[in-house]
Nucleic acid binder design. Structure first.
Lengths: 220, 220
DNA sequence: TGCGCCATGTCAGGGAATTGTCAGTCGGCA
DNA sequence: TGCCGACTGACAATTCCCTGACATGGCGCA
């Protein structure tokens, strides 16, 4: 899952990046409003963490312009300003949640999970499809309640597919969300990875839609 | 929009009902966990406002049982308990948002709008004409509820025609939208493609308007 | 330092689906 | 009847994806 972190304080940004990274997200950082707006408008992120106190364009203005352009990704606002009136402003500007500083990273992660969950249309941190169960909090996959050993990349792959089950996910989207922002892969690393996951989870969980991508069916 | 308000304190319930009512919602109230669970499980609400301090079944347990039964409506948790650990619990139990007491009604309304906005924005784009259903998310076509997989080009063709059903689409327009921007096809590739799609979806879905192009009737 | 293990990427081969081309046929219309 | 646009079947080139084998590189550990 690729996350855009918009934060101008370099130290906070570094800390959060570390936390988010170890929680399994792929983090990209923007340090001013212009950059943030451009990245959020042109790239696909699973979520955005947006600090309101930015140089350049104001955070709320960035958010409003995203929404005006139809960008739908969930946004978690992060700020020291915490009066209820400003919270209302943030939420009505199109934010999905609002977290006042100071905060515990556990709460940040929980709210992040929550808005991501909502945006992909599911309400439980545990995803079950057929025999396969994914537990995001424990970073664990079970097949018929037998826990399974997956490598980090394998886990990210199946987690992304399960979180987006019921729709086709293109190879490019998968690569962007599993690997970093790199484009221009002329390798078949992803196909090899798919093969390895299939060998562990069963060949029929992930269907290939030749020419489109891969899909995990919505239920059972 | 129908809202389920789960709140055991009669005075708070009455106040909130009045506020929500004047904001345009239709409010129903449950005062204990059993009742709340039953109503939420059998009725359809646009959103639920859930107080955690309930007699009978605990609020979190109610929420978990709803989610376990696949109930997807957005839930806003409302409680006096406000430590970060409990907030994490509530969000991970499947709540969409969390509001600690005391709160301003403006903020309640803003958060309610937010979670409702989220939940209505995720219906899947499906087009149906006669026996044929197109599911854009799955890149799949169903004929009399039998799923059918088309090649990428075939899919693009029928998707374009279905999205523009009810009017004649010229060959040139089709080519421009199925292939790249290239013009100047002196081949009959498109006709071959039309034939292949007809063989799979039935010959009468796509009508030929000799000299003009093709048309899929609006509905029926 | 060197060894081995694990995760991951790369490469080559192969099979199957996809797609374009072509030649021939059909059918409406003047 | 002749013409022209559209349809069809066959075939071949190409693309896409899977798989097994091997290479690389990090990391723990003796």
């Amino acid at each position: 899952m690729r996350i855009l972190l918009v934060e101008d304080d370099a130290r906070i940004a570094a800390d959060l990046t570390r936390v988010l990274d170890s929680a399994g997200y792929v983090v990209e950082t923007a340090t001013d409003g212009e950059d943030a707006w451009y990245r959020g408008d042109t790239e696909d992120y699973g979520a955005v963490i947006l600090d309101l106190g930015l140089p350049g364009m104001d955070g709320l203005a960035v958010l409003k312009r995203w929404r005006a352009n139809g960008r739908q990704m969930p946004v978690l606002i992060l700020t020291a300003r915490g009066t209820w009136a400003e919270r209302v402003d943030g939420i009505d500007a199109g934010a999905d949640d609002y977290l006042p500083k100071p905060f515990r990273v556990e709460e940040l992660l929980a709210r992040l999970r929550s808005i991501i969950r909502r945006s992909v249309g599911q309400s439980s941190p545990i995803v079950a499809v057929g025999d396969v169960t994914l537990d995001d909090r424990r970073k664990e996959v079970m097949v018929r309640s037998v826990p399974l050993q997956l490598s980090p990349l394998e886990y990210r792959l199946i987690a992304y597919l399960l979180h987006h089950r019921g729709r086709v996910v293109s190879q490019q989207e998968l690569e962007e969300n599993i690997y970093g922002t790199d484009g221009a892969h002329d390798s078949n690393a992803l196909e090899v990875l798919i093969g390895r996951v299939r060998r562990k989870l069963g060949a029929d969980l992930i269907e290939t839609r030749r020419g489109f991508g891969y899909i995990v069916s919505a239920s059972s």
